[in-house]
Design a protein around this nucleic acid. Structure first.
Length: 578
RNA sequence: GCCUCUGUAGUUCAAUGGAUAGAACGGCCCCCUCCUAAGGGGCAAAUAGAAGUUCGAUUCUUCUCGGAGGCACCA
């Protein structure tokens, strides 16, 4: 990476000029090597002289000049200048940029990978839908963000373990089973599509929930069903439970495949509730938890948090106790974990702080390795909570289906006359790109205003625009191959903004991981797409008898490769034609 | 009431404490005998308000005013 190289040169100069006496000194300096706003200011810039000027009592430009004079020879830097109030700007040699294009082609799918997490084992828990219930938009968001962050870690060399934590016990199950039993006459056959089966389950849940609220008798009945699930005493309930659980989980799996996630571990509440509760009781005796009004609570107030119930006065575990069991289970499954990340909605932020504070008193090692990250809500264009046609929160898979429909309409006017099956595959991929991009284009902690039209727009700041640009580049490459043209670095043009940006990719990926912000990659890819489309407009890539064709084809191949790698990190599928 | 997050063009988002605050959509004006015009090139348009720290603040601190979420037997 060029930036590393530049930074090393600066540090060497600081030592040589006697401005810093030890390597330790660099850390305290807090200077930056970054990208200038405009190309006139070079490829890299540093504010080191401004940072140092005060403690040295010298004007920043003088300090800058001293540093520049002490810079070691470099084979990648063409020239260095002192500019503005005292910035030092570095201009790369054109050959260095050309060399990085060669690297893009040579390293291919590996280009952009870093080593900052090499030999680290990291767990990412995300998605966490509940069997028998709808796969909500929130699950879709957590899946998108969690997957992208997991991949960022993988690109830094980590071994990533993906975990999905799912609630297969609790009152919602009783409600669903009650409804299922009432609706057996409309039960879809085993051979039915996954969507139909979960639609039936969702209806059953609504029916059960309505009944539960309707009358105390029915509520009691539902609670009895719930108890029967725990105790496995009713053959019909057992059968319905197994059926509903399987249908739900199978359907979730269809969605994960579409979204590009493959989990390594599935942890269920049913298996961690018991151990979680036992742990809480053990640590009640040790004074970590306390009894209050018959319940077992953790007093978060001693850490500036609030109190939360872990075991109810009825002796049942709450989500808190189950989560303790969940975190313990993770480290039992993966004892050598270095880090554990959990992605959930923002509404669980305060909750998780208390759980982790409690965990700190139980297993400090686990608490210290665990980081909780939250994503915002997905809101409609009016800034209010989205609602489905039926009312209520829309489902994640339902949203995908809607987008697939919108995309299919637009694809109908494509220059390509796709056969129906292929059209469906392309529409699915474009729809996934549309939602994922909409989620990943901004900081995930913030709420997202989701607009169906803007997301599926093929122009501007959208997933489909990235896919279009990739397909466009691939189309040009195919044409070149058909004509038997070769790509090479001969007749190289003076590198412009496009080449400069392509070279930055490994640094951008490293930065995105450091800040855990996949949006760094989306912003970068849009910039690459814009630069390429602009270049494409000004420069004919394939033109008979034009000597630059070979170089331009190589550049196009590099663009396609970087787009591919970036989209792969984001978990956004690409299409060869659209 | 308390706690957490958040306020940037008309709209939706960017910007490691640094140089002229970037894009996209929408608006207005251009560009297809040519490789994907689902594209490209122009123009107009923004840091909620007030103090503070700093050589320098959209970024850090405090307050005011908006927005979202949470505050024990739900998940």
């Amino acid at each position: 990476m060029f930036r590393k190289n530049v930074t090393t040169s600066i540090e060497a100069a600081l030592l040589r000029a006697g401005l810093v006496d030890s390597e330790e000194g660099f850390k305290q300096l807090n200077f930056a090597v970054g990208y200038p706003d405009t190309a006139e200011h070079g490829d890299y810039t540093t504010n080191i002289a401004l940072v140092l000027s005060k403690s040295l009592g010298k004007p920043p430009r003088k300090v800058a000049e001293a540093i520049v004079a002490a810079l070691p020879e470099s084979d990648i830097i063409a020239c260095v200048e002192v500019a503005g109030p005292g910035f030092i700007n570095f201009f790369l040699r054109p050959e260095a940029l050309a060399q990085s294009l060669v690297r893009v082609i040579k390293e291919g799918d590996e280009f952009g990978k870093g080593k900052s997490l090499i030999e680290k084992r990291m767990m990412f828990e995300y998605t966490d839908p509940n069997p028998f219930k709808v796969f909500h938009i929130g699950h879709l968001m957590a899946n998108t963000v969690g997957e992208a962050c997991a991949r960022l870690a993988e690109w830094q060399g980590a071994t990533v373990v993906r975990t999905n934590y799912q609630g297969d016990v609790g009152l919602h199950i009783g409600r669903a089973l009650y409804g299922m039993r009432e609706m057996r006459d409309t039960q879809p056959p085993e051979a039915a599509l996954g969507v139909e089966k979960v639609a039936w389950l969702a209806d059953a849940y609504v029916r059960g929930a309505t009944a539960h609220a309707e009358s105390p008798e029915k509520a009691t009945e539902i609670e009895n069903i719930n108890k029967a699930v725990y105790e496995k005493i009713d053959a019909e309930i057992n059968e319905l439970y197994q059926l509903g659980r399987r249908w739900s989980l199978d359907y979730f799996e269809e969605l994960y495949q579409k979204l590009g996630t493959k989990f390594d571990h599935y942890i269920f509440e049913s298996e961690v509730a018991g151990p979680g509760m036992e742990t809480v009781r053990d640590y009640l005796a040790k004074g970590v938890f306390a009894e209050s009004e018959g319940a077992i609570i953790y007093d978060g107030e001693k850490h500036g948090l609030h109190k939360r119930v872990f075991i109810t006065s009825a002796g049942l575990p709450t989500y808190e106790a189950k989560d303790i069991g969940n975190q313990l289970r993770k480290f039992a499954l993966e004892p050598t974990l270095d880090f554990s990340y959990i992605f959930t909605g923002a509404e669980q932020q305060e909750y998780m702080k208390v759980v982790l504070a409690a965990m700190h008193d139980i297993r400090p090692d686990i608490a210290e390795k665990t980081t909780h990250l939250t994503h915002g809500l997905m809101l409609g264009p009016d800034g209010k909570k989205m609602s489905s046609r039926k009312g209520g929160a829309p489902s994640g898979d339902g949203l995908l289906l809607e987008l697939e429909g919108l995309v299919a309409q637009k694809l109908a006017v494509s220059r390509y006359d796709f056969p129906p099956e292929e059209a469906r595959v392309v529409a699915d991929k474009v729809a996934v790109a549309a939602v994922k991009y909409a989620i990943l284009r901004q900081h995930f902690e913030k709420n997202i205003i989701f607009d169906h039209e803007a997301a599926t727009s093929f122009e501007g700041d959208s997933g489909p625009y990235l896919q279009y640009t990739y397909a466009r580049a691939k189309s040009v490459i195919r044409k070149g191959e058909d004509l038997g043209l070769v790509s090479s670095m001969e007749n190289q043009e003076l590198p412009g903004a496009l080449e400069r940006h392509l070279a930055r990719f490994p640094e951008v990926v490293a930065d995105a991981w450091m800040a855990i912000t996949p949006s760094g990659i989306t912003t970068y890819l849009i910039e690459i797409a814009r630069l390429f489309n602009s270049y494409y407009g000004d420069h004919p890539i394939i033109r008979e008898g034009v000597p630059e064709t070979a170089y331009r084809l190589a550049l196009t191949a590099a663009v396609a490769q970087v787009m591919k790698n970036g989209l792969t990190i984001l978990g956004i599928p690409m299409v060869e034609k659209m």
